[in-house]
């Protein structure tokens, strides 16, 4: 299943990629693919912004604004003083 198009914050800086392929291994959504000796983004809209690739990218070639896609948490983030929404 797919969600909305062109909204995710995942970015790849090809120049920094060293081709360790760690992102290929941690991504649970098959967003990346091998491309010559490096990687490239195969399916950007499949990304769920979990943050696994960016956290495990040693050269910091990947960046993403991580989080959970949860309406209650987002409503809470609009009202910063409220806590305890209980979604995950």
């Amino acid at each position: 299943m797919k969600y909305l198009n062109n909204v995710v914050t995942l970015k790849l800086d090809e120049a920094k990629c060293v081709g360790c392929m760690e992102c290929l291994e941690v991504c649970p959504r098959l967003v990346f693919e091998k491309y010559s000796s490096k990687i490239r983004i195969k399916d950007l809209d499949a990304c769920i912004e979990c943050g696994a690739c960016a956290l495990n990218c040693a050269p910091k070639a990947l960046t993403v604004q991580p989080g959970v896609g949860c309406a209650a948490a987002i409503i809470n983030s609009w009202f910063p003083q409220k806590k305890d929404s209980g979604c995950c």
Binding site: M1, I48, G67, C70, C87
Partner: peptide, 16 residues
């Protein structure tokens, strides 16, 4: 959306 395994937070916020 919070329970699914294919939604992104940026997408959910846009939708909301």
């Amino acid at each position: 959306t919070g329970s699914t395994s294919f939604t992104s937070p940026s997408g959910v916020e846009k939708e909301m």
